[in-house]
Design a protein around this nucleic acid. Sequence first.
DNA 1: CTGAAAGCGCTTACAG
DNA 2: CTGAAAGCGCTTACAG
Lengths: 346, 346
Amino acid sequence: MQGPKRPTINDIARESGFSKTAVSFAFNDPSRISEKTCQLIRETAERLGYIPDPMARNFSLRRHLSIGFLLPQVVQYSLQNPYTMQVIQGIGTVCETHGYTLTLIPPLHKSITEAVRNAAVDGLITMGMQVDMDIVSVMQTRLLPYVTIDGTPDERMPSVNIQDEQASYDLMNLVLSSGHTEIVVIALSNDAFAKEGEADSVPSKRMRGFNRALSERNLQLDEQNILVCECTLEDGKRMGKLILQRAHRPTCVVAMSDIVAIGCMLSFKEAFVQVPSEISVVGFDDIDEAACINPSLTTVSQPAKEKGRLAAEALFRILNKEELTSAHMEIPYTIIRRESLSDHQD
Amino acid sequence: MQGPKRPTINDIARESGFSKTAVSFAFNDPSRISEKTCQLIRETAERLGYIPDPMARNFSLRRHLSIGFLLPQVVQYSLQNPYTMQVIQGIGTVCETHGYTLTLIPPLHKSITEAVRNAAVDGLITMGMQVDMDIVSVMQTRLLPYVTIDGTPDERMPSVNIQDEQASYDLMNLVLSSGHTEIVVIALSNDAFAKEGEADSVPSKRMRGFNRALSERNLQLDEQNILVCECTLEDGKRMGKLILQRAHRPTCVVAMSDIVAIGCMLSFKEAFVQVPSEISVVGFDDIDEAACINPSLTTVSQPAKEKGRLAAEALFRILNKEELTSAHMEIPYTIIRRESLSDHQD
DNA sequence: CTGAAAGCGCTTACAG
DNA sequence: CTGAAAGCGCTTACAG
């Protein structure tokens, strides 16, 4: 009543008159058996509708043939961010060439750690990770290879980054040389699974870059001029509204992420506040939308696909027991000036 | 020399002095053993760094806890199309609530069929499928549940669609009522795994809708005014160039996909051909970029996330042996007029 | 070239 | 509450 059962290797062995070994060889290494045997077995398989069970095969071979990408947030948000999507694209391309699938892993029962405990993959790529997190220790006890993107560099954790501190310094410098002094920074909360105030997290590094540029000009950000938000369009919009409510409006908003910057711009547009004539906005990532939104967004361009690609390639190298030339990969960024940043004079 | 091995349930049983059964219960059904036993076992597990092997567990339970999404093209292209990405988002959201992961499955050794044979998933969602394809028979012999999006409806294949024929009719009607008569259609090649000229494939249905609108006005498309291209930005650009090379330029380009329409527009921009004053362009899908590109794109808005969501929900219903209220789900579309389509008079 | 048998690491019906 | 044992469907070293 449970519906038909799939035939197993045993059925084919029995039906064809050969051993399981022979059947296995017929599918995996025909050179080990005679052509005739192979043919007979294949015919029987075809007739009974036999396709070797991938799970049993993988289990026996102790491998999954899949790489996992740990979604840093709930699916809804992670996949809404074009930056993340580009990273996934990069990873996917590499998986494809290796004959692997790419498993997107959302939090399980709200818990990312739980998701990692159960992940049916041969290795993991994560974003914004630090060594002292629970996930890392789970991966280590599972002996699961991993690489992190935008994480906190550590000996025990291969990572792919840009020079976030310097990029942020450059970005803020551009803002400052354009004459802005009334600035609000929208920082990112340390990523989903990070502990508070980790000094070398990407948000911290970016903040440090901003501050360095500011202090070189004897400027300093008041606490009230540092907002923190989730890396989502919605939260970006919320930030935009918060900023508009202020008695004293900044002349420029510096966001740590394009998706947040764009959220802001949408709120500004809704309130008929002109960018950049009334308020400038700059972002970070250079997602496709940054170039195509109106006004176009000034931002830091970082090669997201390339990050994914590098991370995946490093992971496969680890899987193949090859040496990594370097555990910490850094790739170049560029500052892209577009319309959303205007020159300002008091 | 092969590095340390992970402890297995046997090690924990031996070390803790209890049986494998007890160890299993300690992790999966603590109510079956005494609290003390459970605690002792857990401590031993913690001490030895034991985490139950998900693959072994899944194998024993005959499930993967993952849904597969079959990429219709090479990763590079599939994931570059925002429409596909949105579908993935929708599927992902549903997977998350069910505690499942989402496996992206690229062609294996260039073969999609091969990929399906080996897919380690509990069910599959595909795009643009027809029952008579190899993949379908593989899924059927594997007894793998499946749902298709933008596929050719058939009794044996649950599907999610919009009314493609009608939507295309409406779109073409809009173009025609704007006064255009010199039209080039950019059709999509029948999807990766489709056979030629399938009458009910999405591209065929759209073409039929176009033709219906045309013939109602006693118009007809020459063969040379129907181009066929891959659903990629690159191929869209190529089409744009092809069109510019013509002695006799059309006044409007009607593409079956936004990504292709945008590719066209990029080529036009590059050649300093103004949209829409010199040539109009309309697309299909209403990806985010359609609203944000300049000029904004006239298109058919179809809820891609919703499609993914519906497909995934149907799939889970099948997995749970629930009845599907209907095998063929249809959702509404809307025509969105934006700047890229201008009124035209001869 | 071929096959009997052990093994991959779990779960669970069954008996005590 | 606890455990011995069979079973999930493959692979593969080993012997013939």
